[in-house]
Nucleic acid binder design. Structure first.
Lengths: 240, 240
DNA sequence: CGCTTTATTGAGAGATATCAATACTTGTGG
DNA sequence: CCACAAGTATTGATATCTCTCAATAAAGCG
């Protein structure tokens, strides 16, 4: 199956602004040059376009160059669960490394571009370059940790705390990407937020309103500005 | 810090009955011999003894030789969430590979023994033995997939379905370990089950009773026999 | 601009939690 | 080996959070 959108070939890892977040992080520049040979291709996705589907044979990892994606898992009976949101510099496709097939759908939340890292080539290289292997392990481990914290959130916390933690997490990631004054945009719909948090969109809406009325945040559609970050942390009960 | 319990040195991976489940699975026997040199030590744990704690520096992986453990994560505010139950042949400690510290507590549910795999030595070996690297990837990937399915369960399913899926999952693993007639023992308390499933022990109790009255299972304390496995699958809405 | 999608708001219902009491196990020490 | 204590599980009554259903409002898109 060909990619729905066209591939482009351009910027090298060694010249990419995202090095700090992405695979190159913590690698020697000599090692990053090796990556250049791998991540040659990129895909552009429009909103709602699918990068890969649950069940597809896993042959690549991807790193988000710009934009935002979500991953979600679903079962026959129709249920589906949003598992994560993925911003510039983040690696996706790791859910395929156990079974050789992706376990999730990855879908663009807005116009996005991702770098394609052919996995068998990557493996070969990693086998020869310990630093790369190590970096891969860190990235996988990060995802594992994240999922485990997410499990705590879904299993043990009331909706209010889940939402507070979610906002704080996005804030942190937005800040790392240059956002200031705790102001950023939600790239996902209320439905996606709700699914991610294990609550309904109505509950999301009501909680957002409550936070807003409590003076914790200011909301206008999908724009948010955190007013009282201490208050939010308190509400969240700390986790991060 | 020394291990609370004493270490023992004995059986080699190449001679272990568990090879089929454990690390050796799918490895050439020559490669398994290499593992022998690594997994030399074992720890015996009594019920409630802690194998490692959240925050401890991660320097080993472990494989369960016999017995059963749980892993759980907790936060300041007291909440804690059981993340998994681990039976013979299963690898634990992977949650530490991202941050170099374990992200969870691992606690014995009954008298258990685990093999210690020093992680730096393991890494060295894996760097030289691609098959081992590959196997490690599979194992990590499996855990990632599992966690993602667990997230769906916690986020999107009603208690009844969560419990049905849980029972079916345990049944499958018990069967793989030699159980017959869909009869096996819960190694964990109702509290642990509840935490794992994101419901209270009272709800667990009531659902178990309901399943029992519906003729799906027979329960006596922590022993269970599945009577109508089709019915359970139906209730679960399929996922596995 | 109108139409479709997305988000908000309200009223009511329901699943699960909480609180409380009882019953059952398990382990320990006499 | 029994008896008691401590931990664990069951059961019931009630409360509550969150969902569901329904209507409205706002935004994004062609």
């Amino acid at each position: 199956m060909l990619w729905p959108p066209s591939k482009t070939i351009q910027i090298k890892c060694s010249e990419c602004m995202l090095g700090h977040f992405c695979f190159p992080a913590q690698l020697d520049s000599s090692d990053v040059l090796l990556l250049d040979a791998l991540a040659k291709e990129r895909v552009h996705l429009k909103r709602d376009e699918v990068l890969y589907r649950q069940g597809d044979v896993m042959n690549s990892l991807f790193s988000v160059r710009f934009g935002a994606l979500k991953t979600e898992i679903s079962i026959q009976s129709g249920q589906h669960q949003v598992l994560g949101f993925h911003l510039a510099g983040e690696i996706i496709g790791l859910d395929g490394i156990g079974e050789d097939r992706y376990q999730t759908n990855a879908i663009a939340l807005e116009d996005s571009e991702v770098c394609i890292i052919p996995f068998d080539e990557f493996e070969d290289l990693a086998q020869r370059v310990p630093a790369l292997q190590h970096q891969f392990r860190r990235i996988v481990g990060k995802e594992l940790s994240q999922d485990k914290r997410h499990l705590l959130s879904l299993g043990s916390l009331p909706a209010e705390r889940k939402l507070a933690l979610f906002i704080l997490n996005l804030d942190q990631r937005a800040k790392a990407r240059g956002a200031v004054n705790h102001e950023f945009e939600f790239k996902m719909s209320r439905a996606d937020m709700g699914s991610f948090l294990g609550i309904t969109i109505e509950t999301v809406s009501r909680l957002v309103k409550r936070f807003s009325e409590a003076g914790l945040i200011q909301i206008k559609q999908r724009s948010i500005k955190i007013i009282d970050i201490g208050g939010l942390h308190e509400l969240a009960g700390e986790l991060n």
